[in-house]
Design a protein around this nucleic acid. Structure first.
Lengths: 351, 351
DNA sequence: GTGAAAGCGCTAACAG
DNA sequence: CTGTTAGCGCTTTCAC
């Protein structure tokens, strides 16, 4: 069906060894021969099979990517960043998604490993305690984590704790005292925990009492009535919400609107992810931004460095700067300092 | 490094053939032997290399996916749909993106082909005139297009012409007469052309004059001043905009707001894609929806059918139903029928 | 400068 | 039931 090196050899009237050399080391072969071989290659539309090479023990030039989902633009953007560099450098990507499921994480890694990928770029639910990663450390292939903010393993991420801390401090600076954190299905993930810890620290430092994160299943794109009640009723209702990701923030925002609450006048909202789309809302969503494309590209570069053996230094976790996008969804509480400035200037600052 | 079947054979004290059988046809081997082999496999943490199998001419269980970009959720959603079925059926996905670039389309297909993928799922810029697809038809591998709405090749898509027609007719039904179509960088794509044709037909059928699509580069997430002027100034300014995709619609919407135009009171907007996020806007964006996950899954099923040789019938192009989500961004023109109902009920109808 | 041959990990006849 | 052997497409000594 598809022509092989053998067909080319026959067509050109040389041995397969010569054809191989003509392809991989053109300078070592007689120009006339070379020309004839190339003719044959063109005539047959021959493309060397990576399979042969790979099997021969050469580099597979294959990198595995394991992501929770592509439904969240955060990961799609990371993948986009990886793909940019990968295709520029002649690597192929093998993609698997896990839906935050440990079982599927295991399966993905095993599959990729079987495929003899040269390296792995992955985002897992919980990096620190993951036995699979220990296995990878021991038996390869080399890997780099994305968005898993851990000091124990090679990773590229923002400082989730610090980022959440900064964000919540901003809310506090706007006079908010009853601030609630909302988390999605990632509640079991290390990221969510770190963000909650940052929230808690900011609260305590201001003499406020942190609450446990309110877990929300937002797959339905609708807010449960019970949740809504929790957010809107009573004098002790929160005046600001810190959402563990932008998608969740958007759903919440719409839910509140339906309940006739105004954002930000009646409720301030801060997201996490800094999605481009969330900035297109009206008002633009305030959000802690992560440089997703850059995270993908950095992860790629670190992986390549590790593969190339250039990996140096004990700094396993690379921390990229997060940003704080002060959109229009944060208002100052009237009876405190910033009164009046319901809508802050837009723009983002690097923290 | 990684153990091979040979290592397992040695460890178990049997031949590699027996090990192979123990793996691929357990019932043909003595239970005792089987147990011993399995022990060895576990002890060595052996995973059979697909490379060997693939080289042997077996099925590679590898499918190539070629997409313009992952930055647009439309494609991320398609991929998500594909991935669902692929991983359930034990296939691996190799992903390449093209950024709408013909050069990169060619490169992607060649790379994937070299990798001996069993099939290809792709979205190209222009399906009808694509020489690469002719080559695929001739030399394989089998493929299915997504979002390329053509009758000449195996594809899964909505009817772009009809969808645009339906959408624009709705705008007209609301009393709009000066309706402009905005298109993004995909202006060179078959989809954009088909959508414009649908727009034009709806206009003409209503006795209105269609305008050429206004091309907009919205990578910057900002609207060019010249464009904005075009949309807002003069008595002949459009009262409704039909945007060739939701991302564009969102950018436009924000641009208009900044220019102090109210949506939908001063300008109605209709998008195309039906992105989940665009429904979270306030008001929710009216949009023609495409079932992206379903498109991905259908493409997968058709590809599998083709590979399995079950491909039947001359119906190359599979057309999936589009939806019309009447969000809050379409208002009736006051001096015509629907006056008063500035905001329509939400909900989606299958067309 | 070129060819013959071995071998990468695996499966599939074919023997025994 | 199990082992031997050939060969998938390719690269790479090692001869010539």
């Amino acid at each position: 069906m598809t022509p092989t090196i053998k067909d080319v050899a026959a067509h050109a009237g040389f041995s397969i060894a010569t054809v191989s050399r003509a392809i991989n080391a053109p300078h070592t072969v007689n120009p006339v021969t070379l020309a004839r071989v190339r003719e044959a290659i063109d005539a047959l539309k021959f493309i060397p099979s990576p399979l042969g090479r790979q099997l021969r023990g050469e580099r597979t030039r294959l990198i595995g990517v394991v992501l929770p989902t592509l439904a969240n633009p955060v990961f799609a953007e990371c993948l986009q960043g990886i793909d940019e560099l990968a295709s520029a450098q002649g690597f192929r990507l093998m993609l698997m998604t896990t839906q935050y499921d440990a079982q599927r994480e295991r399966h993905a890694i095993e599959t990729l490993r079987a495929q003899r990928v040269e390296g792995l770029i992955l985002t897992v639910a919980d990096a620190d305690t993951h036995p699979l990663l220990d296995e990878l450390d021991a038996d390869g292939p080399l890997y780099v984590l994305m968005h898993n903010d851990t000091k124990r393993r090679p990773s590229v991420s923002v400082d989730n704790h610090q980022a959440a801390f900064d964000g919540v401090r901003t809310l506090i600076a706007h006079g908010h005292r009853r601030i609630l954190m909302l988390a999605g299905t990632l509640a079991a993930s290390d990221r969510a925990r770190q963000r909650h810890a940052g929230y808690a620290q900011a609260m305590e430092q201001a003499g406020l009492t942190p609450a446990p994160a309110l877990e929300i299943d937002f797959n339905t794109a609708e807010l449960a009535p019970s949740v809504l009640a929790h957010l809107t009723s009573g004098p002790s209702r929160p005046t600001a919400l810190f959402c563990s990701n932008d998608l969740l923030a958007m759903v919440v925002m719409r839910g509140l609107r339906r309940a006739r609450m105004r954002v930000p006048q009646d409720m301030s909202i801060l997201g996490f992810d800094g999605l481009a789309v969330s900035e297109l809302l009206a008002p633009p969503l305030a959000s802690i931004g992560t440089p997703n494309g850059e995270i993908g590209r950095s992860a790629w570069q670190r992986l390549m460095a590790r593969i190339g053996g250039e990996y140096a230094g004990p700094s396993l976790g690379l921390t990229l700067p997060h940003t704080l996008r002060e959109g229009g969804t944060i208002a100052a509480i009237a009876n405190v300092t910033h009164s009046g400035s319901l809508q802050r200037a837009r723009g983002s600052i690097v923290s």
